[in-house]
């Protein structure tokens, strides 16, 4: 088992992103940052224009060093979008990437409660509280490296499948092209001239 870090020593930094006015337009980001400072384990919290920008990320890295932060919470957009960005950011500052947690206060807050500033701000506070609670208990994780086969299966031999197969094969990758019909070609094979160039299709 990988040894979990001692959770008592969590030193958390919290970053509330304005995302221009995308978040700040509906959420009182300063108030959320001020609230974050009161949460257990939080050493440092600030709101920023764009956390994902170069200066935004540089700030996180600098704070990690300056305040000895060992957990980072970014309250911004969806982790489905920017989790890789911020994982990379903290690891560049020497932190294990799994010690970064996100609170989604854009897709699931400011963008959907834009007419309810109070509700949106309360929700953002609650989501940050939840993320901080989780961050306190995050453990260092090491990713497993697995070999990748350098070959591709292409399903469907229409013009799209053919083009993809040729690009890959020309670049040196073996391809298996599977087509259910007796010939490749798809719909395009049935066309005579094609727009916009009005030339032959095959």
């Amino acid at each position: 088992m990988q040894k979990p870090e001692s959770h008592d020593t969590a030193r958390i930094g919290v970053y509330i992103c304005h995302c221009g006015s995308n978040i700040a337009g509906a959420v009182d980001c300063e108030a959320v940052a001020a609230y974050a400072r009161t949460l257990p384990g939080v050493i440092h919290a600030r709101d920023q224009g764009y956390t994902c920008s170069e200066p935004g990320q540089a700030q996180i890295k600098q704070d990690i060093r300056e305040f000895g932060l060992n957990r980072i919470v970014v309250a911004s957009c969806s982790p489905r979008l920017h989790e890789p960005t911020f994982r990379k950011c903290v690891s560049e500052a020497g932190l294990n990437p799994y010690l970064m947690e996100m609170a989604n206060i854009r897709e699931q807050c400011s963008w959907v409660h834009s007419l309810d500033r109070e509700g949106a701000t309360t929700k953002a506070r609650d989501l940050v509280r939840s993320a901080v609670a989780r961050a306190r208990l995050l453990d260092v994780r090491t990713e497993l490296e697995v070999p990748v086969r350098r070959s591709t299966l292409v399903i469907g031999g229409g013009v799209a499948g053919i083009q993809a197969a040729l690009d890959l094969a020309d670049a040196g990758y073996p391809v298996v092209l599977v087509e259910k019909q007796p010939s490749i070609g798809g719909i395009m094979a049935q066309l005579d001239k094609t727009f916009p160039t009005m030339d032959c299709s095959i």
Binding site: V148, L166, G172, K180
Partner: peptide, 25 residues
Amino acid sequence: AGRHPRITLLTQSEVKEITGFVGNF
């Protein structure tokens, strides 16, 4: 595509089963 040395063309074919995960299907 039919002639390419690195393309195995399987016509009248259907994918029956895919298991495994990225890198190793």
